[in-house]
Simulated scan of single mutants.
Amino acid sequence: MGLRERKKRQTRRAIADAALRLFTERGYEETTIADIAEAADVSPRTFFSYFPSKEDVVFAEIDERLAEVREGVARRPAGETPLQSMRRIVFEMIDAIAAAHGEYGAIQVQLILERPSLQARALKRMNDTEQHVVERLTELSPDIDEVDAIVIAGALVGGMKAVITHCRAQGYDPEATRNAVDRALAIVEHGLGSVPALTHPVP
């Protein structure tokens, strides 16, 4: 990542951190975009160059993690089985997920669970990620059954979403979060191991 991209990511994270802090201190409805921009030391115009709306800033860190899932699925070493790929991708994400927004993780989950508009945006993100995983699995394993691919993507993305949501809502520390994710992944792997297409390496 070049200097320009690093600075853009830093600004994006500064805006998101300021927003979550203000949502915690003042409340979501009471916080304006102007408030967030001021707290992040940027202009409202700069805010809108990073986020289309106040709702989208809630998902800033989630969007980064989902992008990492998509990148990880695409970056697959030769000879690695799809099942091994899934474990590698998830574990590459664990440290980032466990550490990111530890202070504001609970308010992030609370905001999403309490507001239908945020729930709809969260569902759209999950559906898009599942579809990407399905497409990539089909590319890597052309013989995989379509239903198997859909179930695999749903199990992986849905399972990780469920455990991370729980850990953040309960205020788990990074180590506890890693342990919970590892247990969740073991459960998912147990079921997915029955799909032959996942356990055969692809050249």
Rank of each mutant, 00 (worst) to 15 (best):
R4A: 14
R4L: 12
K8Y: 06
R13W: 03
A16S: 02
A16W: 00
A18I: 05
R21F: 05
R21G: 03
E25P: 03
R26L: 14
G27H: 06
G27S: 11
G27T: 04
G27Y: 12
E29N: 15
E29W: 08
I33W: 03
D35H: 02
I36W: 01
P44L: 02
R45G: 15
T46V: 07
F47S: 00
F51H: 05
F51G: 07
S53F: 13
F59K: 06
E61W: 00
A74K: 15
R75S: 15
G79N: 13
R87H: 08
V90A: 01
D95T: 14
A98E: 02
H101F: 07
H101M: 08
Y104A: 02
G105W: 06
G105C: 02
I107G: 04
Q110I: 10
E114V: 10
S117N: 13
A120G: 06
N127K: 02
D143L: 03
I144K: 06
E146N: 09
E146W: 11
D148K: 13
A153F: 08
V157K: 05
V157L: 10
V157P: 04
I164F: 10
I164T: 15
T165W: 15
T165F: 14
T165Y: 14
G171S: 07
P174M: 06
P174V: 11
A180F: 06
V181I: 15
R183K: 08
A184W: 00
H190I: 08
G193Q: 01
V195C: 07
T199R: 10
P203R: 07
